[in-house]
Amino acid sequence: MEAYILMALLALLAAITIAIVFQRSLFAVVILAGIYSFLMATVMIVLDAVDVAMTEASVGAGISTVVFLATLHLTRAREYPRPRSVMLPLFVSSVVAAVLVWGTFELPRFGAAETPIHQHIAPHYLKEAKRETGVPNVVTAVLADYRSFDTLGETTVIFTGGIGILVLLRGRRRKRGEDKDAVDPGVRDA
């Protein structure tokens, strides 16, 4: 049953991807991308990764859609006409897709228990997390305790991203002020 649900969801994902490629109105593309994210969140729920599904639904479908719409408000909502030749982009994406598919042949079967990631330190986390940290949710225990260095790094990345967007989108107004300051001494000299 789960396999059929997954197949239906993946077929819908493929259909939406094709629709995004052929859609010229960027408004429709943004909405389709939001639908894509919600479908992806459903796929994550089927795979029992509820945390990832929550993140995908709130960031991918929620915040990203709003930011994209705000961007469309600042720019134009139509895509530029497509370049005359589609052969080169088609070639590049086919080669990349072929390499990615080729790469999956080496991957272990989905959910196989004998793979290194399931044998290294994960069993320890699963068995001992409740006793060692007092937190029943292993994901939270790993994120905030065993691997808190990674989470500190992630928080710093979010902080840096926010600062970067502030600098990019607010820079112009300040620059104009600086230009005025730069001109003023020259005027005084003259």
């Binding site: 509820v50 945390d51 929550m54 937190v135 029943p136 949710n137 939270t140 994120l143």
Partner: peptide
């Protein structure tokens, strides 16, 4: 978040 999915 200590008991169910999700966190900060």
């Amino acid at each position: 978040g200590d008991y169910g999915p999700g966190g900060g």
